[in-house]
Simulated assay, not measured.
Amino acid sequence: MMKDPPASRALRDANRAFKPVEIKKEISDYAKTQQSLHENRERLKAERLAREARERTHRE
């Protein structure tokens, strides 16, 4: 079993301590708009389903 020379061990420890940070890609205006539309559509759908469920329970 070979031991790492101190320089290699120190370098390996430094690389572990200072891992590269993932850079998130900025979302384009188009993607932001699409995401907003999707979220709004899902919110409106949930509200509509809740309203329809309330109407069904009131009729019965």
Rank of each mutant, 00 (worst) to 15 (best):
M1N: 07
M1D: 10
M1R: 00
M1Y: 05
M2V: 09
K3C: 07
K3G: 10
D4S: 10
D4K: 11
P5M: 10
P6D: 13
A7M: 04
A7D: 08
A7R: 04
S8L: 11
S8A: 14
R9F: 03
R9G: 02
R9E: 13
A10L: 08
A10V: 02
L11Y: 12
L11R: 15
L11P: 00
R12H: 13
R12W: 03
R12V: 01
D13G: 01
D13S: 05
N15R: 15
N15F: 12
N15S: 05
N15A: 09
R16C: 02
R16I: 02
A17T: 01
A17D: 02
A17G: 05
F18D: 15
F18L: 14
V21H: 06
V21E: 14
E22D: 12
E22K: 08
E22R: 09
E22H: 02
K24T: 04
S28P: 01
S28H: 01
S28V: 02
D29E: 10
A31F: 00
A31E: 15
K32G: 06
K32Q: 04
K32D: 04
K32P: 00
T33S: 15
T33A: 15
T33F: 13
S36H: 10
L37A: 11
L37N: 14
E39A: 09
N40V: 07
N40R: 11
N40H: 03
R41P: 00
R41L: 10
E42R: 12
E42S: 05
L44S: 13
L44W: 07
L44V: 07
L44F: 13
K45L: 09
K45F: 05
A46L: 04
E47D: 12
E47L: 10
E47Q: 14
R48Q: 12
R48D: 11
L49M: 12
L49G: 03
A50F: 01
A50V: 01
E52S: 03
E52I: 05
A53N: 07
A53K: 09
R54Q: 14
R54Y: 06
R54E: 15
E55K: 12
E55H: 03
E55R: 12
R56H: 08
R56S: 04
T57M: 10
R59V: 02
R59H: 07
E60K: 08
